[in-house]
């Protein structure tokens, strides 16, 4: 029996193990779940080591050291020491007496990235969206575009009113907010159907594996 066949059998049995959750929680599911979680956690550790820790930190520091010893220059790659230092501070969580130092790393990660995201979000979720919504309300000789543009402008306007938090939704303002909710719900309905169909393709993929690759019933 080749390794590939053994792999297929293990994959098939574990797929059934996860599917058995549909019936109820059972030892077969518990085993499959524990194996899945454990193997994936281990896999991610290896991926992180080989794709981030080694090439980003160790390789760059080795390069910086080489430049220093060969050319006698302090290369910019030494900046990676900063990342390495923050990583070591994170590991200090293992020692309760100095564990508080890890907060420096956390503050750096959350603060820096929040700042970086600020302009990116404002650009992609703000300005570009506004620009995309500025549409002509009347397109000469094209009724479909006219109606489509009006729906987009009115929908966006009312949707924005719904997301006003510092004003009570009453009167005309409340009415516009309700229209906004209608637009949101119709959009969600369409998205629901669309996403369900894409999930079906995942199920079909698994069924294809079980009945095709594993059992050979689908040629």
């Amino acid at each position: 029996m080749s390794g590939e066949v053994v792999g297929l059998w293990i994959g098939g049995i574990l797929t059934l193990g996860i599917f058995s959750f549909i019936y109820k929680d059972n030892p077969f599911y518990k085993f499959s779940e524990a194996l899945f979680v454990g193997v994936s956690a281990g896999y991610w550790f290896v991926v992180t080591f080989w794709q981030y820790f080694l090439p980003k930190l160790i390789d760059n520091l080795v390069l910086a050291y080489t430049v220093l010893t060969v050319e006698g220059k302090i290369d910019y790659h030494w900046v990676y020491l900063l990342g390495g230092g923050l990583g070591i501070l994170m590991l200090l969580r293992l020692f309760p007496s100095v564990g508080w130092l890890s907060r420096w790393s956390l503050a750096f990660i959350v603060g820096t990235t929040a700042g970086l995201q600020f302009t990116r979000y404002l650009e992609s979720n703000g300005i570009i969206q506004v620009k995309g919504t500025i549409l002509s309300l009347f397109v000469w000789g094209d009724l479909n575009s006219t109606i489509g543009n009006i729906v987009i402008v009115v929908g966006t306007f009312c949707g924005l009113i719904y997301f006003f938090f510092s004003k009570e939704h009453k009167g005309a303002f409340g009415g516009a907010a309700r229209v906004g909710v209608w637009f949101l719900m119709i959009t969600f309905g369409a998205l629901f159907g669309y996403t369900v169909m894409s999930r079906m393709s995942l199920l079909i993929g698994r069924m294809d594996f079980l009945f095709g690759n594993w059992l050979g019933l689908i040629k």
Partner: peptide, 19 residues
């Protein structure tokens, strides 16, 4: 920490919910 893999994480959380 459970795992970083999406569906393995789901399997783990579902188990917690049921148990």
């Amino acid at each position: 920490y459970l795992t970083s893999m999406q569906f393995a994480y789901v399997a783990g959380v579902n188990g917690i919910m049921i148990r």
